[in-house]
Nucleic acid binder design. Structure first.
Lengths: 234, 234
DNA sequence: TGATGACCAAATTAGCACATTGGTCACCAA
DNA sequence: TTGGTGACCAATGTGCTAATTTGGTCATCA
């Protein structure tokens, strides 16, 4: 079978899995049902992924790729998007707009159930996706971080703040319903005040940093794409 | 029966309930068991609280009173403790050091189970306990907030940040294990940078605001104490 | 008159037969 | 020869009933 056909088939299966995941929730979706609706035999699914968990990981990884691509595209179009507060704002919005990523980041137990605790999902959250050390090092190098901060100083407070934005929703009083953009704006404002440099950086800092960051996130996107379509080796 | 004896009995029951709650978790603790260990009849428990939920709410409320008392004492000893970032730092530390409050704020399902979703627990979290509008209004009045902020501007971002600090723990990579004070310091630093005034306020601002805040939190503490020992009326 | 525990309805658990599901692999069609 | 398939299997889950536990009440008692 041609590689293109293989990829197309993988996508068909992933589309089906994603659709059922969002409609029925993780525990209700069986491999049988996915295979049937995708028009392939059950065994064929296992020619693409090692296990059920891996398959659903791939569903998430594909959305992660979309999100990363959107981030990279934004940085290409406007290098100031590389700044931490701009990047995280976009990350937040792009993640929340994609149903599977939103379910993962908001820890939506209704939709994801046991998958939230499964080890296969691990790479989908975690600091690596959120803000790699490589990226933060680039920010520091180009003067886009507060002068007294080293990248590792963000290890605790940055994920903590961002996690708060993904997770508070169910705890807030209902009368407080900001739209996604307003929340993202709050997040950006906070990150700029807490981690941003005192003075506005030069335009050249942005272009230099953006070019480096695009490389970093481009690689990250390719890694996720590879992970999503990985064939099980034995 | 004398009021003092009544209170002592209530405390004995609450001590027992708290002990079992922390050892066995919410769902495993029965009223029968609590009554037996507290040396009273089951009916007696219902002379103090209307329902099982109310009883466990009282367990939390009593710890909330302890916490609020600690906060008030700190403000009395040092009026600069009234500043938002100092107050929330202390709030965070005092809450995390008390097992029942920590379970509530970290949403520890293992310990609290169904109680997390029960309406009786509602008053124990929520913005009221965290930072009432009255308190924020005092801060604004005395110039202890960023000049361009009105109290209601904090409604969304403040609980969001604080929630993050209570809730991230299970998501962080294990190698990152700051002690409680270090986490609290991060929280304080963030809140000062995001919500604090540009210039250091005068000492008189702190004393004035602290005196007002002590009144507010003193009342809140009394309300919780009353709620904890409330007799069910019919 | 305050405290108690037997009592009851409602919810939970235990036990068991039956159905479903993740994953494998012998077989087959191209 | 080989990529695709679905019958197959162990293990997990589901429905069902009987038996137990539990929250809450209240007649009775000290």
């Amino acid at each position: 079978m041609l590689d293109d056909d293989r990829l197309a088939r993988a996508d068909r299966i992933l589309d089906t899995a994603k659709d059922l995941l969002l409609r029925w929730g993780y525990r209700r979706v069986s491999i049988d049902e996915i295979a049937k609706r995708a028009g392939v035999g059950k065994g064929t699914v296992y020619l693409h992924w090692r296990s059920r968990e891996q398959l659903f990981f791939a569903v998430g990884a594909r959305e992660a790729v979309e999100m990363i691509d959107a981030v990279v595209a934004a940085m290409r179009a406007d290098p100031t998007e590389v700044a931490l507060h701009r990047y995280m704002r976009r990350f937040f919005v792009e993640a929340m707009r994609r149903p599977v990523l939103r379910a993962i980041f908001t820890r939506d137990a209704e939709t994801l159930g046991a998958f939230l605790a499964s080890p296969a999902r691990r790479p989908l959250e975690g600091a690596k996706l959120l803000a790699s050390h490589d990226y933060l090092a680039v920010l520091a190098e180009y003067g886009l971080l507060r002068e007294d901060l080293r990248p590792e100083d963000l290890d605790y407070p940055l994920p903590t703040i961002v996690f708060g934005f993904f997770g508070v929703e169910p705890l807030l009083p209902p009368h407080l319903d900001l739209d996604l953009e307003a929340k993202a704006e709050h997040l950006a404002d906070i990150l700029r005040r807490v981690f941003g440099p005192a003075a506005e950086p030069a335009a050249t800092a942005y272009t230099g940093a953006a070019s480096r960051a695009i490389t970093i996130f481009g690689r990250l996107g390719r890694d996720f794409r590879d992970a999503a379509y990985t064939t099980p080796e034995r």
